[in-house]
Nucleic acid binder design. Sequence first.
DNA 1: CTGTTAGCGCCTTCAC
DNA 2: GTGAAGGCGCTAACAG
Lengths: 345, 345
Amino acid sequence: MSGKLPGGRRQPTIHEVAATAGVSIGTVSRVASESPRVAPETRARVLAAMAELGYQPNAAARAMRTNQTMTIGFLIPDMTNQVFARVAQGAETVLAPEGYMLFAFSSNRSPAREIEFLQAARQRQMDGLIVTLSDETATGTIEEIARMGVPVVVLDREIPVEADVVYSEHMQPIETVVEQLLQLGHRRIGLITASHNIRPGRDRVVGFKRALAKAGVPIDEWLIRARTQSAERGMAETHDLLTGPNPPTAILAAGSDIFYGALKAVRLLGLSIPDDISFVGADDALLGELVYPPITVIDRDMVEVGRQAAGLLLDRLKGLDGPPRRIMLGSDVLLRGSIAAPKRR
Amino acid sequence: MSGKLPGGRRQPTIHEVAATAGVSIGTVSRVASESPRVAPETRARVLAAMAELGYQPNAAARAMRTNQTMTIGFLIPDMTNQVFARVAQGAETVLAPEGYMLFAFSSNRSPAREIEFLQAARQRQMDGLIVTLSDETATGTIEEIARMGVPVVVLDREIPVEADVVYSEHMQPIETVVEQLLQLGHRRIGLITASHNIRPGRDRVVGFKRALAKAGVPIDEWLIRARTQSAERGMAETHDLLTGPNPPTAILAAGSDIFYGALKAVRLLGLSIPDDISFVGADDALLGELVYPPITVIDRDMVEVGRQAAGLLLDRLKGLDGPPRRIMLGSDVLLRGSIAAPKRR
DNA sequence: CTGTTAGCGCCTTCAC
DNA sequence: GTGAAGGCGCTAACAG
């Protein structure tokens, strides 16, 4: 097996199938494309030849003719975050029955990698994209999306592109939680969430401030930490808040990674929930349930987000024209024993 | 914008770039492929034209000539399982600097979907694959792998294919843990793990039985549950074990999903760890740390698994020939407060 | 119903 | 240093 090409062992082509089946390549093509105009007996012979040779049509050649690849790209900021993985799972359930393959690419929250993915998707002529950007202010990414030429569905971001979007509700659940905490007597509440550069971060801060304002509680910017979304960050911010001069009596860890880190910081400080500190997490209902006491969590159905996004994409793939559509999905507040009245000091 | 092809807006081709730059397509191709034999001034004109038109070379056409796609496929059983996601992350860090794009596909533990993925990968002429199969006994999957014609790296499975493999150590850590439990006085230990149809499931059972045999403790098959790997299954098996006639005094939940489910079952039964039941989890060190009391966990560095797998693949991509190679990576037992001597009854 | 043929966009000799 | 031309494997349009 010398002289092997870069692509590895040569794969059988339509010509070889035609030869072994004793027909022309046109007929093989018709069988491969499930065209009806083939005699049953011929079709059987061709199918047999295909099976014998292990023939798979060359997607590149096919794409070149049809301008279709039956491939959908899914851009996620972080593969190891279950929140995004669930979206992929949901999208897959809608796309697979239509014959599309969904391939996921993780940018590790790097706008540069996001651009590389978008270019790769364009080169590969992917038929459509579902994207979650890590920074709405990165103009390069947005320009690339505009150039795509195929339908793109954007998840939970506000960017100046003509694209369908699936949003999650972020303000209202935060408001609900903050109102609860205020009612219990909390006056100093810490919020740790994603950066202002993405919609979830902004909206959570807005909801947070709105609830405080409604109750006439002054806003202390020191208590609001809207930065990178990671466990490390969640831990650091929580530690900083709780060891500061005038610490909060409740922590809102809005984001799954932040949730993990914040909870870890609370553990490390040896604080007890909810006696020493009230605690609210997000996006990982299961973790909230497994720890003791169970933790109040702001939860979303990310699988449904994926299904909806795939649905919007499919419509476009089927030729739907018209202005961008927006879908807003709700969030739930799962109230559990991690919040209580603050300790009198 | 009528008459649009299935592929969406037509993308600029090499011809248009050539026209606007006032050169021939050959020259454009040379610039795109970074061939040296181009005059600096010409190259600049071409580059400008490319930027102006937003040109990206058509990967299908290129693949057809070069038999290379610079694409690596990653087959995972379940995208929402962090264990696999971390592998992808590790692999990506090795592959990206070499110019390869890593695309992940989740089979949802369906051998049929795995076959579809392998065929899709072959059609698309992916340059290499990293695969985690959900069932070693599914012959169709194995046949497809044999047909691939490009390098494939297999993760933690024993299948009759000429492929490089990265294994994790599963027997030894289980043995260590069981020995610990025996020393504490446990005689009835429940093991919940993956199916016998995959190596991790088999090896864990072997390690488990070996430790018992060494200590002369009789083996009760009722205590061994090696079936599907899921939170639901983990919960059901744990519930069954703990509500049975002669329940175990310790539970080994070997697998991250199983870990979640098993822990949930313990919670629902209102049992306290380690007073009522000793508990050992796996593959989610963070969860083990966040709950109270912290839980002893068998942990692995999955990012390293990904790096190693990608390394093996890269060697082959660079033309390395020779027999399959095997890498075995260790596991750690993180001892924490979730195990104690069994209650005297 | 089946065979033949013209490209799809690109890379790669081969001339100039 | 640059242009021209063939062909990668396939589909679709056209003959037969």
